[in-house]
């Protein structure tokens, strides 16, 4: 924690309290003594206040909050997560609030301790103490907490939405979101998604038995039901990793029936195996590759696949 490193000896408190409010942060070791000095100043101001009765409530509340803060720092010590969280929460106690309704200045909300009348020495002392506590203790700690929290969050949901949700078909997307309705924006996005009736295209790269003898036929199929896993890559973009789906393909030329099988995914590549029947009634199996996998394999020099890609859809 930054403030421990910046700690200075408590003897620096020999300077006056107003000077402290304007000076550099003292560090946690000096905080209890700083609070003691504020308590003394406040008592003096209240004792000398001709309208003390009018400002007794804010005086008492300030004393209570100062003592509470001191007790917390001394008893629990600052160098604990609990104390840091407590001071962050206490930040709002010492926040100066200007009402957007009538301009009334308050602290210690929601109790609405009004910082008036301005002429009161007690109120003037409370204002100085507030500024000092805020600048020396609560605001620096709250800003540290804020930075920690912000670095933890970094629009993870936006990246998930772009990398995963927008790659799904609407029915898949609504299905996944509906099944996952309890996941709030506070939670991390899921690492897997259902696939449902997801159209896929590919090329038959291998056929067990064939009447036409034509491999590399382009086919259209559906990932009927499956699961797809995702993970963030080095650039924190969501990418598909592994997946497995039940595959359904439409009857193509040279087939006597629709096909059924399995399709696996690894990153952008898909590889499937399907079974169907030939017109002569014999069963046949086929290996199907996604187009990008085919393109990858083209590097191996398979001209037959290149031709099939070029002829797709014609």
């Amino acid at each position: 924690m930054r403030h421990l490193n910046l700690a200075l000896p408590a003897c620096i408190l020999l300077v006056t309290v107003p000077a402290l409010a304007e000076g550099v942060p003292l560090g946690p070791e000096a905080w209890p003594a700083l609070i003691d000095a504020h308590l003394r100043d406040l008592d003096r101001a209240f004792a000398a206040d001709p309208g003390a009765d009018q400002v007794r409530a804010p005086y008492q509340k300030t004393v209570r909050h100062l003592r509470e803060l001191r007790e917390h720092l001394v008893v629990k010590g600052f160098a604990t997560t609990t104390a840091s969280a407590w001071i962050t929460a206490a930040n709002r106690t010492w926040q100066l609030n200007v009402s957007p309704v009538d301009g009334t200045e308050t602290i210690f909300e929601p109790d609405s301790t009004v910082l008036a009348p301005a002429s009161s020495p007690t109120i003037a002392a409370i204002r100085k103490i507030r500024d000092s506590i805020a600048s020396q203790i609560t605001v620096p700690v709250a800003l540290d907490t804020f930075k920690t929290r912000v670095s933890r969050s970094s629009d993870q949901w936006g990246r998930f939405y772009k990398g995963v949700v927008l790659q799904e078909y609407p029915w898949e997307s609504f299905l996944n979101a509906g099944l996952d309705w309890r996941r709030s924006a506070l939670d991390a996005p899921p690492d897997r998604q259902w696939r449902l009736l997801h159209p896929v295209s590919g090329l038959v790269a291998y056929q067990g038995r064939s009447t036409t003898g034509t491999a590399s036929t382009a086919i259209l199929g559906l990932e009927a039901l499956g699961l797809q896993w995702y993970a963030e890559d080095d650039q924190r973009a969501y990418k598909a990793t592994w997946g497995l789906s039940a595959l359904f393909t439409l009857k193509g030329p040279g087939d006597a029936s629709n096909g059924y099988g399995l399709m696996g995914t690894y990153r952008d590549f898909k590889l499937g195996v399907k079974w169907g029947r030939l017109p002569d009634g014999r069963g046949t199996s086929q290996v199907i590759l996604s187009l990008n996998l085919v393109q990858y394999l083209q590097l191996k020099g398979d001209q037959g696949l290149s031709t099939a890609i070029a002829n797709m859809g014609q």
Binding site: S153, D155, Q156, W157, G158, F160, Y161, V164, V165, S173, F174, N176, A177, G178, D180, W181, R183, S184, A185, P189
Partner: peptide, 16 residues
């Protein structure tokens, strides 16, 4: 109202 992920992305966008 019904798309958990779109909703969370919107919430996070405005929050950030």
């Amino acid at each position: 109202r019904f798309h958990t992920y779109a909703r969370n992305a919107v919430i996070e966008r405005v929050a950030s």
